[in-house]
């Protein structure tokens, strides 16, 4: 199994498309960092316009590395599923398209092993993307913008809030958020892998994955009671942004934030468990489908 995984990782590392994701992330992060370095104060004024009467904070220190990373993740984690689908959606269908799938399956390796290895490789690719995001969006931003208390703008129903997290209480939240994001993106990878089994070229599963994510995300964002009750709990996209929960800090009645706390850990934990369940379902379906598949390519 380990040898198979090494082979799979080697193949991924040699594919040019693998690096598209890293280049895209780097480009987006640099654009954000440049824009905020040049004109971040205007953004801050815009975001804080509803709360400046009730909340006083030092805007010069608000734009720091922690804040930057949060802004970037908010935007990027919506787009990263596309990048994950690029690799996971190609995992089986790319082999079928190239004609190597039939050669692969004449080797003394079980189909279940092949899928597990491709899943693990997709997971490791996802993790490496997130590590790269951490390096560029978090650590590079910390180097460029410095470190201070973290300000978060939040809309809760009709109410706008500003949360302030002290600088010594931030880093663990980022580690937890990145770990959560790894699980969330692995759901996308396992969905793309499942679709990849049914296709004989990479484009189909990649586009299908992106379409499913878009449709489900749109439904997840419709605030109508019937959808809240009957649709959202069953859509994996409802849980993708659960990482934000690590930054929603508890506060006292006076508005003072409590270090080391989370507003709703049970909700974050349940979201995480839901995502893990989705991974289990998609992966199991992939194994079953692949074991039954006649290789005609």
């Amino acid at each position: 199994m380990w040898k198979l995984l090494q082979i799979e990782l080697y193949k991924i590392s040699k594919k040019p498309r693998t690096y598209i994701a890293f280049i895209a992330i780097t480009a987006i992060v640099f654009v954000f960092q440049f824009a905020f370095k040049a004109d971040g104060k205007a953004y801050l004024d815009f975001m804080a316009q509803d709360v400046t009467d009730s909340f006083v904070f030092d805007k010069s220190k608000a734009i720091n590395g922690y804040f930057m990373c949060y802004i970037i993740l908010n935007t990027l984690l919506v787009q990263v599923p596309i990048l994950v689908a690029l690799v996971a959606g190609d995992a089986v269908s790319g082999e079928a398209n190239m004609g190597t799938l039939r050669l692969l399956l004449t080797k003394p390796v079980s189909r279940t092993q092949i899928i597990l290895v491709k899943f693990i490789a997709s997971f490791l690719f996802t993790v490496s993307l997130l590590v790269w995001m951490a390096v560029t969006a978090l650590f590079l931003s910390m180097a460029i913008f410095g470190v201070d208390d973290m300000i978060i703008f939040r809309s809760k129903g009709d109410v706008s809030q500003i949360l302030q997290i002290t600088k010594d209480d931030v880093m663990w939240r980022y580690f937890a958020a990145f770990a959560y994001a790894a699980v969330a993106l692995t759901v996308i990878a396992s969905l793309a892998l499942l679709l990849s089994v049914f296709a004989e070229n990479s484009i189909g599963p990649i586009i299908a994955t992106v379409c499913i994510v878009i449709v489900c995300t749109v439904i997840s964002n419709i605030n109508v009671p019937i959808i809240d009750k009957y649709a959202k709990p069953y859509l994996f996209t409802s849980y993708l942004v659960g990482w934000k929960g690590f930054f929603y800090i508890n506060s006292t009645d006076d508005g003072e934030t409590l270090k080391g706390t989370m507003e709703n850990w049970p909700a974050v934990r349940n979201s995480l468990l839901n995502l893990l369940a989705y991974i289990a379902v998609f992966l199991s379906a992939t194994i079953i489908a692949f074991r039954r598949k006649d290789i005609l390519s």
Binding site: K11, K14, P16, M98, T100, L103, T106, K107, P108
Partner: peptide, 21 residues
């Protein structure tokens, strides 16, 4: 399956490989 496939070599129609390797 695995025991038997260790003793078999095959070319199935086109000789396809990993083109990028």
């Amino acid at each position: 399956r695995n025991e038997i496939l260790k003793k078999i070599g095959a070319i199935i129609e086109r000789p396809d490989h990993y083109k990028y390797l």
